[in-house]
Design a protein around this nucleic acid. Sequence first.
RNA 1: GCCCUCAUCGUCUAGUGGUCUAGGACACCAGGUUUUCAUCCUGGCGGCAGGGGUUCAAAUCCCCUUGAGGGUACCA
Length: 490
Amino acid sequence: MMEGMRLRFPPSPTGKIHIGNMRTALFNWLWARKNKGTLVLRIEDTDQERSTKEFEDIIIQEMQWLGLDVDEGIGVGGEYGPYRQSERVDIYREYAEKLLEEGKAYYCYCTPEELQAMREEAARKGEMPRYNQHCRHLKEEELEAYKKEGRVPVIRFKMPDEEQEIIINDLIRGEIKFSTDVLDDFIIFKSDGMPTYNFAVVIDDALMKISQVIRGEDHISNTPKQILLYEAFGFPVPEFAHLPLILDENRAKLKKRSDSDAVYIGEFREKGYLPEALFNFLSLVGWSPKDEREIMSREEIISLFDISDVNKSSAVFDIEKLNWMNGKYIRDADLERIMELSIPYLQEAGLVGEEISGEEYDWLKKVIEVARTGVDYLSQIPAEAEIFFTELEFADKEKALAEFKDEEVELVFKTLKEDLRNLAEFDRDSINNIFKELRKKLPVKAKKIYRPVRLALTGRDSGPELSDIIYIFGLEEVEKRLDEALAMAK
RNA sequence: GCCCUCAUCGUCUAGUGGUCUAGGACACCAGGUUUUCAUCCUGGCGGCAGGGGUUCAAAUCCCCUUGAGGGUACCA
């Protein structure tokens, strides 16, 4: 087995995976791919209250959707399993025992209520809330007394007696120093028999031979505790890289606040964002290539990416820019693919049936080709394409009527129909030419040509280019609508 | 409160002591694409948080202030 770089993404299945998590996964993935290393997916489900299998499945599904394949771990297997923390409890217990035996940890019988009281007192005194080590030096009979009371203990890790400086050498931030004075004897095993995060993460990363830990900035303050644990076991300490956080528009940690703001990956997928667009966008939050490229393929990003180039400061999630980028990807993508992805939205809107004939498919292709230029994401396609599917409906009938009553309109419509009928080739360019000619040969202002025609055909005063609309509707439908408009005016 | 992190246009960012009257992108504004919205093209608006140092020279280094964020759990 080669001694390559080993990275991991260890989400906790306590909620749907969102933008922030996924960006962490992405950066781990990028760095693993860049270095031909191994990416491990581990599930941290030690919070029995909130962890569910459903959320775990969502994580896997969304990672696949974004194209972040995993080399080892959940869904893949590997020689360092199991990869679900709830299945590793025996391992954690074994290591906790070791600490207990070596006098580096101890049982604590304090109840949550007692702890809460301690914290409140500390707050009142203006001190940092630290565990007062009440159970650290318990005598045998005191221990027995607690046991008899039926108290279930937790296990705490002993902080060194002497003040000690802990230095993190962060790949992104450089040196970060902590004093053990601000740490307390933290819990490594909960009374429910599960290890705490700080304990399990160290055991797993060490046993799974993780060489680099790339995670969110919110973990910086956990790191000194973890380093102490590594040292207590004599494990080699991995390198750390703490990513800047992704903030919402109010500069607070990104999270779901209302139905309207999308933060979960699934929401973006359902709205019709393209995975490669989200991938590209996410790679650019907190990182950028040396040159001024923005639209980049996966391969380009991998080759340009370097963890040490990652920004230190947190970034606001800019949905406007994502929208622009996604729209660009939609316009540049293969049309057939955009069609396949768009059809479900059209079906859901009731615009297209379950069965699509070959003829309908060809027609749909034209419609989507036109509609895609106006959208940020695919679920907007039905609204954009609606005019091609439904009966004519006026957004403002009075306004349209006034427009049709104009004396020049009849001439315009008549000439247009005639020219269209005489067309040798009914295609966009030819149709466009007709309008050019129309403007030359008719004593009418351009506005008086385009507006009434648009209104007569679509009932709206904005939409795709007229030549596209006429091309898609076809001669018969165009004539019909023009005639109807004229009839209305009479 | 205490600990930690961060600080360039509204937003994402380039910038690692002189080439910076600070570059790009999104958004916004204007013009163009024989003229609708959009797309596309061109141009414009707009920023080094403040104060002290260090230096011939500072967006870049140091200190302070301020601001923002994270942590301070038998959550991860």
